[in-house]
Structures are given as C-alpha cells and as structure tokens.
Design a protein around this nucleic acid. Structure first.
Lengths: 188, 188, 188, 188
DNA sequence: GATGAATGAGCATTCATTCAT
DNA sequence: AATGAATGAATGCTCATTCAT
C-alpha cells in the first residue's frame, strides 16, 4: 500500500498504525486486514516494494560501453538524484537496517541487496584498475567496502544534515583518491 | 537507567516499555516513575547519557604531541574499539538519527555532536596538510565530510554485516588516499 | 449510556469508572471507547441527556387554559413526582452544579436551564398578579428567585432527609403566601 | 489541615490529593500520613472542622432580648454575610451533602446540624406567632421546612449564579409573607 | 517527628485483530 | 469484497499508602 509506504517514511515504523493506513487509503480497517492479514504482512509488502525499487537500480542496464570512471560518477550522481527525488526510500532503508537487527527476513533481504551492490562496485573498480584509470595500488575489497560505507554514510548525513554535505566536492575528492590523479583543474 | 539503555539497544525505542525497564531494574513501575516522571523523561536521560559518552570521546585530551597521522589512525582505532566494546552506544546513536527527523531537541544535540567531530577532524587534517604528511591537494571541507560520512557508514555496516567489513584494510586504504602514499608494503 | 447515568447517580462522578460502565453494560472497555472516545465524552453524553430531560419538562406544553394557580400547583406536583420517579436525575443535577464551578460548558448549560425556569415562573406569576389570584404586592423578580431557590433547596432536602420534608403542607403554605389567602380550611 | 480545607473548596473532594495537601502545607507526604493515617481520616478532620464552624453559628448566643423578627432578619443577614466571607464553607457543605448519600457518618453529622437549625427556626417562629408579629395562620413545621429549603437553595443559587439572586428583595418578600404585612413602604 | 524511596492496585486509553453481516 | 462493531492484551501513568532510616 502506497499509504503505508508514505506513513513509514513520515513517522517511522514506530508510528505506523493500521487504522491510519486504512483511513488514508480510504478503506475500512477490516478491509485492510482483508488484504494484509497482519501488520507484519503489511510491512513485508512495503519491504518487498522497497527491495524491488532498490534492486532495480543496481540491476538497471548500465550502458555496456560506459567506462569505469563513468560508472563511478554515475553511481554518485544516481545516489544524489535518487535521494533528492525519493528520500522516503532511503529513510525506510535506514529504518530497515535497524529492523534487520531483530528480523531475519529483513536481514537476508538487505544482505542480498548489499551483495548486489558489492559486485557492481567490484566490477567497475576491477575493470578500472585493469584499464589503468584507477590507482594500481587499489585494494579492491577494501575499496568496495569503503565506497559502500561511504555511500551509506552519505545517506545518513543527507538525512540528518543535508546542508553540511558538499556533495560535489566530496565526490570529486573521492574520485581523485581512486584515480590517484590530482585535481582536474591542476593536473600534476 | 542502565536497563533502559540496554533495552533500547536490544529492541529500539519502538519496543521500549516502562514496565520492562522497571522489572529488569528490579523495581516497581511506580518506582521508575518516581525517578523519571514520564517515558519521555527516561528517554531524555538515556540520550543525555549517550551524548556525554560520545562527547567525552571527542573532547578527550589527545596527546598534544601526537602527529596528524597518529590522530587519524587513533580515530580509526578508537571507533573500531568502541564499537566492539559498546555496540549499544552506536545502535542507539543510529536510532537517534532517525528520531532526530521528528524531534528537534535530538536534532540539535546530534548537530552539536557532529560539529565537534567536524572540528576535530578538520584540525588534524589541516595540520597534516601543513606539515606535508597529507596530500597537498586535499580539499579539507570535502575530506572532513567524506571521513564523517565514511565513519557513519562504518557504523551502519558494522551493525548490519560486520564480517563483510575488512576494517584493517579499509583503514589502510583510506590512509593511503589521504597521505597520497602508496601501500606501505611497497614504498615508493 | 444508561449505565453511566445510573453509576453517576449511585456514586457520583468521583467514582465513575469506564471499566464499571462497560462491564455493567455488558461490553468490553474498548467497545465503550468505540462509542465514547474519552471519559469526558461519556460524561458529556450523560450531561446532554440530563439537559434534554430537564429542558423537556419546562418546555412541555402546559395546558394553555391552565390558570396561574394551577400552574404553580402543577410545578410543585411535577417536581415532587419527578423526584420520586427519577431521583437520579436530580442527584446528577446536584453533582453538576458542583462541577459547573470548574467547568464552563456545564456552567453555561445550567444557566440556560435556569433561564428557562425563570421565564416560566415569571410568566405565570405575572399573569396571576394581573388576574388578581396572586397578591398584588408581589415583587415578581424576588418571588421568582425565591421560588427557584426554594425549588433547589427542596431537591437538596429531599435528597438528604426526605422524611423531614412535609411536602404537602409546605406547598400549601407557599401557596397561601403567594395568593395572600388564609388556609383553605379557614377562609377569611 | 487548612490546606485540605482550601483544596476541597477549590476542586472538590474529587480532586483532593494527599500529595497536594502535603506539598501545600510544606511537609512530606509521609509526614501528612503520620498525622492522618488515611485520606479518609483527613476528610474526617475537615468535616469536623466544618461541623464546629457551622454549629458555632447556630449556637451562637443570640441576644436573648432580640425579637422574632430580628432573629429572622439576623438569620438572613448572617447567611448572606457568611457566604460572602467564607464561601468555601458552603461549597464544602454542599459537597458533603452529596457525600452523605454514601457515607453514614457524614449523614449523621449533617442531620444533627439540620436538627439544630430546625429547632432554632422553630423557636423564633413559634414565639413570633405567639407574639403576633408573624401571621397567625402559619403552619410552623411547614414554615420551618420551607425556610430551611429556601436557605439551602440560596446557597445553591449563590454558588452557581450569584448575580441572579436579588438577596435584599428576596429577603424582604419572605418577611412580608411570614409577617403577613404588605411592603413596609406602603403598608395596607 | 519527619522524610526519601518504594509499592500495589488501578485507571483511561490504544491498537491490532476478529467476526457477523 | 467490504464494513461496523467488538475485543484482548497491553501501555503509560496515578495515587494513597508503607517502610527503613
């Protein structure tokens, strides 16, 4: 239910009330329970929807011909764009991470998502090193972990204190670190 | 109350029950309310305690003679150590970030914490660049933001999927990025 | 809810418990709250019901042809009859007078009731004086106030010490006072 | 305790809290319970105090030489004066009437008070009739009951809607009724 | 005498869920 | 497929009272 999705992003799982979901959707509480037997079922629905949405992104057919550097930039650009457009998605993702500590199903789903993300980053980093566009001394697994941690931390920061996060310069800096190049305006 | 602290880290604010806190602490519900008039008061107490604990760290008198590089390493070491010893603290911090979206008081407290952290990192990065131990092309504000995002993302990752986070190698990599030096095993 | 009505007259607002109302009505506490969101709502319902009941009396279409003296007697008769039949109503009215000291809504409702009562008495007293059945030296406003005070005091007395209140003789006496006539048994 | 007295008149028995009484009196709750084992004891104390205060009035040595008419006027004057000076006393009396419906001790005390009052009024009415200052056709018991009901009703009215009670004219009217005389300004 | 701390019994209210229709 | 009515099991909180000191 769209309304559940919206409500969670507004007030978190903590404030999610079946009555509220039903009334916002314009149906009776009993009707809601006709479709989602329990609240847990409803949440499962929300999670699955989120999962598909996020999975879609990572799977999205990147242009085969794009270079590793383009992929890195695309990753940054994409996450920034998506956070601006649908911050709810990321707030719910953040909430789910918490819930995954106590819910195995969610934990599995999130690990699956992380796995995909890992392989995606690993792919273009490896390619980039091989092609010489990224630093040759890159410790690939460590770099993947770093980029993922950084990505999640960016969500955290953007969520709490967006104005204190100079995205452009941050992305540029990371790019320099990974490529090993100096600032593009003053190449060594 | 220690028990509230523990309970929140176990089940989140969502599952915090005054009855449970009281019974775990071995007192009557009414006794709990004798000390904390409302549940909100109890939470406030927990938050303040967390705040002091985290603030203490950043303020802790670092050895004046420590070099910027040592400070960076100390930062990594410290966060890893503290997460291992008292993961609850970080889980609660994570929860609070969520709560801060809907609670101004918490938002302010967390921003204050972030401010301190920012100044701390900014301090040693600036010093490191001046002394030549860090890359001269470092974009300080961007680097601070990156390190903070990375730090928060590490909490997130460690919380959800600790075994997939090769801390040592990640830290080493970041160090190389910041110092601009190659891997220590293959000095230039 | 009838049961709330009964319970208040039995134990006053002070001892009114939603649980008790619900259980007496044979429903679950939650069911009671389904109809009356709060206890205050329930009380409001009771008050409104009482209000209608009392208002109805004063508005009740008195026989147009009834003489002022008949109206006075009817007033006495009616109050005695009603107190015997539904003493709860008057006990609750008494309680409400107390509550009105601290609750503006109730104060307004009771003043409205008093206003109707005042106009009703004023009506037949004026008519009676004009027609010569009542003493010509009657100070109408004072007489109305006296009759109302007397009416309320009768409720008070009947409530606390019914056997010490010789209603018949009291009413007869007042009638003599108002008409200025001697006792019917010994006409002047 | 004075504070209990004040609190009851402010908010009724319903809102009487031992904590509040204690804190207003500037002592600990436990200390209050040292003097009044139970809340019931405290209330008993208040009731006794009220009883003495009201009893004192009726017993107060009226001037032996005062005439029945003076006594009637004194009665009116006194009640008006006392209500103005210490309305709390009458509010509590009103509350107690309600409580007496469920508490035998209070019922007995109030009936004792009523008895004294009855005898007092009966005394001067009888004397007045004998001396010819009051109507000869006065039905003494009925008149006593009427005056008492009127007195209580006056408390009720004054409590709820003081400005709608023209005391002076009301008293004058009753006096005319009892004496059988026309208005003093225009004697028949 | 006095008090801080503690408690049992209760209270209004909430909420996911069920059920007859 | 939909709903109004009903409910059990909490939940945060209150308050008179007790007790060790």
């Amino acid at each position: 239910m769209d309304e559940a999705y919206r409500l969670i992003s507004e007030g978190g799982f903590e404030r999610l009330r079946t009555r509220e979901v039903a009334s916002r959707a314009g149906v009776n509480t009993a009707t809601l329970h006709y479709y989602f037997a329990t609240k847990e079922d409803l949440i499962r629905g929300v999670v699955e929807r989120l999962f598909q949405e996020l999975a879609m992104v990572d799977e999205s057919p990147r242009d085969e011909s794009s270079t590793p550097l383009e992929e890195l930039r695309e990753e940054f650009e994409d996450s920034r764009y998506r956070f601006q457009e649908t911050p709810e998605t990321y707030i719910i993702l953040y909430e789910l991470s918490l819930r995954s500590l106590r819910d195995e199903t969610i934990r599995d789903m999130l690990q699956e998502l992380d796995g995909r993300w890992w392989r995606h980053i690993e792919g273009y980093l490896t390619k980039g090193v091989r092609e010489g566009v990224f630093r040759s001394d890159l410790d690939i697994p460590a770099a993947v972990a770093t980029l993922m941690a950084f990505g999640k931390g960016s969500i955290w920061q953007s969520m709490n204190n967006p104005q204190a996060f100079p995205a452009d310069r941050v992305y540029a800096q990371i790019e320099r670190w990974i490529t090993g190049k100096g600032p593009s305006t003053s190449p060594e």
